[in-house]
Design a protein around this nucleic acid. Structure first.
Lengths: 244, 244
DNA sequence: CGGGATTCTCAGGTAATTCACAGGCAGCCG
DNA sequence: CGGCTGCCTGTGAATTACCTGAGAATCCCG
């Protein structure tokens, strides 16, 4: 199975070339943020700031997936979507939307197997959803079974179940996302800033010590009594690796 | 047994190639929606916006099934149907129709083994009917188990009968579709948004908590007293899996 | 047209979850 | 060894997510 430079499994197209993703968002800060996170996954990313550009790049790049902000300035997102579909009928789309827009608009849009994320989102979530779309669309090879394992710790991204040594462990949504991020990067130190950026919403304005707090929660649930898997690197961050 | 990328069984043609479906509808938004949902089933889909195009694609594609909106602009649906039949006499057709369309008319149309759904429909329903047509027409590799089972819970997609541990359970239409969707994705967390998109009509504009409500109904009927099969993943969605 | 079944809204209740705050502990430096 | 800094974690408050009863509106069937 192919692995990326940083040791995680990655999705590739059937011909072995990297998956191509188009990000369409008029807020360039957001587009850049996303773009960086997706490149880190080993994907080839292009960004477009408006609908016209999006269509142009779609023609040229023929992306395997599109991340589309549905509130765009020039054309609205729906128009862009229509033209996208004419170019590439099958391309899976991940919509970005405001939380309160969800009810009316999105229902129906996302129906065919597309998906959406509400702003403000966490990068972990965007990446996870996009992986799901790619996996299902079949554009990407590699059935990565959606199960992460580190030592006797197992996390199933489909059922959201976590167990250690066969024993079920109940995690809250935030704990789950934090653990997923750690397990996607085993034996690698992740700084509190990185974790905050990936697991919490991009506009999180709270105290930085939430990360410490949630690490503490995870330890209680995962490492309790056993040989610890979550380790602190003082002044650097945290990492997860198999115990003993 | 062939499975789609997301792990569900899929229908294939006798030669192993994907089932080919033609969608004929002048509302492109609707055609796209359908097309996406059907592709998600692993089928090869082409869309036509009017009757002339429909005939052209039929000649070229020779589809295994056709989804036909019977109110088309240029020719009316009946004319299209006639010409379709001349090209491919045996192809099963799923009609899309307005709710108030004359009953007799439809009854006559669907007499030959065809079927129909009224607008606005839910994607679950269209997919289910189309599967039924394909299964019966024999175009798709016959494995006519239209029965889903998870633990001792059994759901028959043909007869719409549901039982747990041998005991019949009566479900309403909406409850049935929700349960079917869950059972088609066992051990997989489905978000409320996903459920809303698949199970409710594409134009549903109501409160998102109908999903919670119907989950509650289902639990009362399915899990009552027994070891629960429907589980809540707080902050993520719902999933079904065998009890214990 | 009437009555029962069904779908859905609304709103109150409950429990889980998130997070801030603050005191305590531990490693590390001079 | 003393003190500084970074990390850990108990407590509790605010918020959120979810569940469900009651009833209105609608559909369906005879």
């Amino acid at each position: 199975m192919p692995t990326s430079p940083h040791g995680r499994t990655e999705l590739l197209r059937p011909d072995g070339s990297p998956v191509r993703v188009l990000v369409v968002d008029d807020e360039s800060a957001l587009a850049d943020l996303l773009s960086m996170a997706l490149r880190y996954e080993g994907w080839e990313v292009r960004t477009a700031g408006d609908g016209a550009e999006a269509i142009r790049i779609t023609r040229e790049l023929r992306p395997d997936a599109v991340v589309l902000d549905i509130m765009l300035p020039d054309m609205d997102g729906l128009a862009v979507l229509g033209r996208l579909r004419r170019e590439l009928p099958d391309v899976p789309v991940l919509f970005l939307t405001a939380r309160d827009a969800v009810e009316d608009r999105i229902a129906g849009l996302t129906a065919g197997g597309d998906d959406y994320v509400t702003k403000p989102f966490s990068l972990e979530e965007v990446v996870a959803r996009l992986r799901g779309l790619l996996r299902r669309s079949g554009a990407a090879a590699a059935r990565s079974e959606s199960v992460l394992a580190v030592g006797d710790l197992v996390l199933d991204e489909d059922s959201h179940e976590v167990s250690r040594g066969g024993r079920e462990i109940h995690l809250t949504a935030t704990e789950f996302e934090l653990l997923r991020y750690l397990m996607r990067n085993p034996r690698r130190v992740l700084s509190k800033a990185q974790i905050l950026d990936r697991v919490w919403s991009y506009d999180f304005g709270g105290q930085a010590n939430v990360v410490e707090l949630y690490i503490s929660y995870l330890r209680r649930k995962i490492d309790a009594g056993r040989s610890p898997m979550i380790h602190t690197r003082r002044g650097a961050g945290y990492l997860i690796k198999p115990g003993e």
